[in-house]
């Protein structure tokens, strides 16, 4: 990957990069008041709509925070709590349904983590509770995916200049604000975004090749 950075002629990036970097096109927000009213009235189709709207998002947050273990059950638990609250008239402001769902998911995550921490606090005799061992086992698929991503990242970083790595290091590792990086490294805002965008594109490209089984081999690390 080349490390050449060119200043776009306009002050804003254009073309496909704009679509990728600034995705601000509109999407449709449901009428929460109507949906809540239908669920409150026991309309089964409304429950399906609720699941269709929030199912993927709830699954994402639970998976990200708790892992794949019993994921379907945890998603279902969240929906039961939300539906019961609506049917019992506990949701006072239907327009805040999103915030309520978020709170329910957060509480479920916190409760699950608290239960896990309590379970393994200080000393646990595994002769009595052997089943809890599974909590610590690595997920082989996730381990492989992480190893592949690490190798791809290594290749992407090897393909850019030392200066570009320094820029990315400042942003991703040292957590410097982009304004500070641009000022100290003599970059425009667009150059900074272009560098990140190119590295991401290369990362995605190599990831697709790995996913389709093409042309990448990885060092054995075990």
């Amino acid at each position: 990957m080349t490390a050449q950075l060119t200043e776009p002629r306009s002050t804003r990036p254009h073309g496909a990069m704009t679509a990728e970097m600034d995705r601000t096109d509109a999407f449709q927000i449901p009428d929460w008041t109507q949906l809540v009213s239908r669920i409150h009235d026991g309309d089964p189709a409304a429950m399906e709509e609720l699941y269709g709207i929030f199912g993927k998002g709830i699954r994402y947050f639970l998976l990200r925070n708790l892992g794949a273990d019993e994921l379907d059950d945890k998603v279902h638990d969240c929906f039961v709590i939300v539906a019961q609250a609506i049917q019992n008239g506990e949701l006072r402001d239907p327009a805040r349904l999103m915030g309520f769902v978020r709170t329910v998911v957060k509480r479920q995550i916190a409760a699950t983590i608290e239960a896990a921490v309590t379970r393994r606090r200080t000393q646990v005799d595994y002769q009595d509770t052997l089943f809890t061992l599974t909590d610590w086992k690595d997920d082989p698929e996730r381990t492989l995916l992480n190893r592949q991503r690490a190798e791809i990242a290594r290749r992407v970083m090897q393909g850019i200049s030392r200066r570009d790595r320094e820029i990315l290091r400042r942003f991703y590792v040292e957590e410097q604000p982009q304004e500070k990086i641009c000022e100290e490294m003599g970059l425009s805002y667009n150059q900074f975004r272009l560098l990140k965008s190119r590295a991401k594109a290369r990362f995605g490209e190599l990831g697709k090749r790995v996913a389709s089984g093409l042309g990448l081999t990885f060092k054995k690390t075990l």
Partner: peptide, 19 residues
């Protein structure tokens, strides 16, 4: 169901959230 429009999140905001 009635709907209204909203905006997607920008790449920068999603990245800062991920980090």
């Amino acid at each position: 169901m009635d709907t209204k429009s909203g905006l997607h999140q920008s790449e920068d905001r999603l990245e800062l959230y991920a980090l």
